[in-house]
Amino acid sequence: MAWVAESGRAIVSSVAAVILALSAGAIVLWVAGYAPLPALWVMAQAAFGSQFALADTLIKATPLALCGVGVTLAFRSGQFNIGAEGQMLMGALAAVILGRLLVTGWAVVFVLLGAAIIGSLWAWLAAWLKTARGVSEVISTLMLNFIAFWLVSWLVHGPLQEGAKSYPQTDLVAEALWLGRWLPPTRLHTGVFVAVGAAVVGYVWLFMTPIGLRVRVLGESPQAAWTAGIDPVRTTWLALAVSGACAGLAGGVEVLGVSRRLYEQFSPGYGYMAVAVALLARRHPLGVLPAAVCFGALEVGAAGLQRAVGVSAGLASIVEAFVVLAVVVVGGREADAV
């Protein structure tokens, strides 16, 4: 079967990217005077070595996976959506505001729905700018990221600041809305299932529905889509809206599952890292899951490296950056395709 060979090739090249990245990271560590293999082992331990480590990795992987699914779906439609960061922030904002208005447990669904809708509207703005005004989505989604960031920044310093007025952050959302922790004593929350669900639904939507087929046709060949009578405007809107909904959901899940409030530095760049996640996943919604775990492990592992070996934060970030770079290098042809 051709697809078996094809996915085999994709997996091999993604794994090669990770290996390349880790060896590049190892060289950085070595140059800085650390024994690389023990250091990598420490990272692995910190990311997977205990149930707590695993939980931390999955907690980090959850927003990465949700944003990654969103970015993947946009990529498939031929839109280079690098605005998952802003869409996620807007989703988080919506979750925090709804979390103040709705305070009973069953409202979780509505809070998350609201986050997804606001995230999708934020992405749709970029789609509209593209179809109506010809603005490249690369620029518009990036700019919308900044707008979302400064909007959140202003709100947490001003109108939405906590009652105590001490820090630039909102009050906690109602406790009834918090996502359950299903693996105590770890902090692993049920948002993980939302991420897995989104990946599966994204896969089914993309590969098993007529609309998904249309989205892929548009992404592979806009001219063929037009010739086949596929409305490029509506399909672009739809793809970006669904993409933004995933990122918005990431914001909502992160608020209800981890942070429980909004603050300026809410996302340490999940939305940007999601681009690398999507590339490592070879633009496959299900591939996003292992790719997100990979990047989650990297984040947690880098922190563990600091804790255990005393590698400085800057160095740990360099190792992380190398991984992203390697993913883009090996996945480069994929990026061209987008």
């Binding site: 051709a2 087929l213 592979e220 060949s221 001219q223 010739t227």
Partner: peptide, 20 residues
């Protein structure tokens, strides 16, 4: 470029335009 989508499968191309 207009009639077929080279990166999609033969099967998918066979229903392109009629996918609904």
């Amino acid at each position: 470029r207009a009639g077929l989508v080279l990166n999609l499968s033969v099967a998918e191309n066979a229903v392109l335009g009629d996918e609904v």
